[in-house]
Amino acid sequence: MEFDFAAEQPKFLMLMYGLIAFVAVVGGLLLLLDVVPAWFARRREAQLVAASVSGAPLPRRGKPQEGLFALFFLLPTLLLLAVGLVGPAIRTTLLSFMDAGSNNWVGLRNYGWMFSDPTILRVLTNTLIWVILVPLVATSFGLIYAVLVDKARLEAVAKSLIFLPMAISFVGASIIWKFVYAYRSEEQQQIGLLNQIVVSLGGEPKQWLLDSPLNTFLLIVIMVWIQAGFAMVVLSAAIKAIPADIVEAARLDGVSPWQMFWQITMPSIRPALIVVVVTLSIATLKVFDIVRTATNGNYDTSVIANEMYNQAFRYGQNGQGSALAVFLFVLVIPIVIYQIRNLRQQREG
């Protein structure tokens, strides 16, 4: 069938409507906020003039309507979040206390199930391994690489290579790695790179994704492979932003490269480091596609998000799926507390 451009026309029209809506909403909001306060300001000025003429006491200078401004700035975000995330989060929490079809209240039964079923306990342990290892390893690789290629020749190319996996979807990345881990029996030629390396070193080919807990680590490699690029880009930018005079001063003091790294580089990039670690931790808690594509949670590799999807959407167990989601909410609390402390420090500093 040949390509009919005219048939695509409504799509462009729709896209245009979308862009017009964008300009109208954002532009309108800014305009509104600009014009309305200006009008109030003029009125106030007039009042002041009138007051000074009549000799009456000056009207009490009202606190600037900061709160009102904030409300308008935040309005679109708050509305969308309420519909798209807050509502669903509340609904999920309620569902977690109900049965599979969401018809009757069952109290804490779903939570009891979660902490007594050995396969689910395994899922929780796996998630813990993921959330500890991924941010740590991905950030380390990103940082080391950022330091190593900084100011090197072909820096842009070198960075693009590491960033490349970020442009690939999680599903695509998992397929790529499944290919790396592929297994063929000894008599056959290997098609997986990892087994080919093992064979050429004189070993026996292995079915990598079958053996727990090795398989979980192999899946973590996929996530690290994707996310190291993110860490590298953010950290590299932070490193470049360290003021030259500090570096110069330290150099004149004769500090060693090692000291330089720990005493100058690390403290300077701390805010960026926090952003990276926090973002990666949350992304890892929610990891879903990788496990689903690579093993579907078989061989003891499942994680919370994958199990949640299976329970709620494939098995029709809304209650149990929701309970797992609520447990995710709980897991994020330490990160939230850490973030609160950071914010406090920032406000004080």
Partner: peptide
Amino acid sequence: STAAGRVR
């Protein structure tokens, strides 16, 4: 020259 550059 940046800190990391020095290290490197």
